[in-house]
């Protein structure tokens, strides 16, 4: 049962990260390979804020995504906007290169061994069938709230309507007087901030290290292939679901827990190539 709970925690990260990837892809047509590095930056920002400025976890929860999101905005204005007219492949390669730079710099400055971040909530909560560390429970709930808020923002608000419309037909939306380039920048900043927020949440659980996002982003790619990027709710459900499956695998057949998500991906490709919630592209 404890493994299942850990699975949910991982699922929370998968959901937040794949959500960010899907939102960015919808608007920018770029698969953001830098997502894992930005997740790491979120954790690092919190760790540095705590170490140098004594900024507590709860403030970092807001501050760190803001800082990293701002960094994303600069990246978009400086580099990403130059490649939208090209094949998707170039966006993939560009953001891969950026990930190498960011992770390489972090590794060069702080090494690849991790640093601990103290948990802001200690103790456990009795759920009836098990005792779960309260902080992990908080992570799951927080991720769920953030994901649902993002869903609401995109599906139910005016800004979200702009986003959806601009995903379909940016030229026409711009001809209605909406500043689409700024909307694109904002979307990228938001997606990046989501990754950074996941990073802050992960800091007290994992070690804060330069490579904490490297393998994670690859797993999240598989999650995105499984869910398809067409649906916001789809990303959330797929993320949590796969976390659970991974947790269960840890219980029943531990050696496969690393690879089970990829096996699921292979099965989904066999049965429903467009992904569980996707349209064929």
């Amino acid at each position: 049962m404890a493994q299942v709970a850990i699975g949910l925690v991982n699922g929370a990260f998968y959901a937040m990260l794949s959500l960010g990837l899907a939102v960015i892809f919808g608007m920018l047509n770029v698969i953001n390979f830098t997502h894992g590095a930005q997740f790491m930056m979120g954790a690092f920002a919190a760790w540095l804020l705590l170490g140098h400025l004594d900024v507590p976890f709860w403030a970092s929860l807001i501050l760190s995504p803001l800082l990293v999101g701002l960094f994303g905005v600069i990246l978009e204005r400086l580099l990403l906007k130059r490649i939208y007219h090209l094949d998707h492949l170039y966006g993939f390669l560009l953001t891969f290169g950026l990930a190498l730079i960011i992770e390489g710099l972090a590794q060069w400055k702080w090494g690849s061994s991790g640093a601990p971040y103290p948990a802001p909530i200690t103790g456990g909560t009795n759920l009836g069938f098990m005792i779960m560390p309260t902080y992990r429970l908080f992570v799951v709930v927080a991720a769920l709230v953030v994901c649902l808020a993002t869903w609401y923002g995109i599906e139910r608000t005016r800004l979200g309507a702009y986003l959806r419309a601009a995903t379909e037909n940016p030229t026409l939306v711009r001809a209605f007087g909406i500043n689409v380039p700024r909307l694109i920048t904002l979307t990228y900043g938001l997606g990046v901030a989501l990754a950074a927020l996941a990073g802050v949440l992960a800091a007290p659980i994992q070690q804060v290290s330069a490579l904490m996002g490297t393998n994670l982003v690859l797993v999240v790619f598989a999650v995105v292939v499984i869910g398809g990027m067409g649906s916001i709710m789809g990303s959330i459900v797929t993320g949590f679901g796969l976390g659970l499956i991974e947790g269960l695998t840890k219980v029943y057949y531990p050696p496969a827990s690393n690879t089970v998500i990829f096996v699921v991906m292979a099965l989904v490709l066999l049965v429903k190539p467009a992904g569980l919630f996707g349209q064929k592209r």
Binding site: N258, T259, F262, L269, A274
Partner: peptide
């Protein structure tokens, strides 16, 4: 055979994911 069921950028992501699976397999 599995990867060519999707096109474009998905193809790249799928091959990447399979390679990662192979990597995890090799670790163990």
């Amino acid at each position: 055979a599995l990867a060519i069921r999707r096109q474009g950028i998905y193809f790249a992501m799928i091959t990447l994911a399979f390679a990662q699976m192979v990597y995890f397999f090799c670790v163990q």
